[in-house]
């Protein structure tokens, strides 16, 4: 047993409980806060997996950026029906059956498969520097092209979001 193992179970239980609360909560604002908790548990998982830099990124981008953005969007567009999101029993039972069967089938496969034993962790001397070198390396094993593609994608998304949300883009069209 490694010292990180109890923390795995602690954060796993926390993440599962928060994820359940997030998808079942009728109040969207509360669901967003539960989502922030799930993302925090994700950052804890990254720390358990020796990926501290990724945990920092997760805290900054997901919890500091995306969760706050979602909360702002919910507060700005608060509609009468939007606050209470209650699925019909038929929809809920169908979704439960589908997600449980997905979980059951995949768990069956995971438990039946003969996985290789986990290798002992090797401490990495300077992972952030190596990741930066990999991201900007055009040669073998380098990820320059995906890095550039995702940069262009983020630029396109920023332009598209400004275009969609600019004043007058939604109201002038006739409502059908």
């Amino acid at each position: 047993m490694r010292p990180s193992d109890p923390f795995f179970y602690l954060f796993a239980l926390l993440a599962l409980g928060l994820a359940r609360a997030c998808v079942c909560s009728q109040h969207l604002l509360r669901a967003t806060l539960y989502l922030a908790g799930v993302l925090f548990c994700g950052a804890a998982f990254y720390v358990i997996l020796d990926a501290e830099f990724l945990a920092g990124i997760q805290l900054l981008v997901y919890i500091g950026g995306i969760s706050v953005l979602l909360i702002f969007a919910i507060m700005l567009t608060r509609g009468p029906d939007l606050l209470k999101d209650r699925p019909s029993p038929l929809r809920r039972n169908l979704a439960l059956a589908l997600s449980l069967s997905f979980m059951g089938l995949c768990s069956f496969l995971v438990l039946r498969t003969d996985w290789p034993a986990a290798l002992p962790a090797e401490p990495h001397e300077n992972p952030v520097r190596d990741m930066g070198v990999r991201l900007l390396n055009p040669g073998e094993g380098g990820l320059l092209l995906p890095f550039e593609v995702i940069s262009v994608l983020l630029l396109c998304v920023a332009i598209a979001a400004i275009y969609l949300a600019r004043p007058g883009s939604g109201e002038e069209r006739p409502l059908s």
Binding site: L16, C22, V23, L28, V38, L39, L82, R91, S99
Partner: peptide, 21 residues
């Protein structure tokens, strides 16, 4: 859990939360 949320939510924001999970 995310799949369950994706199938039960009706509001667009709820779907987005499930996809994030």
């Amino acid at each position: 859990f995310g799949l369950y949320g994706l199938l039960t939510r009706r509001s667009a924001m709820g779907l987005l939360l499930a996809i994030e999970i």
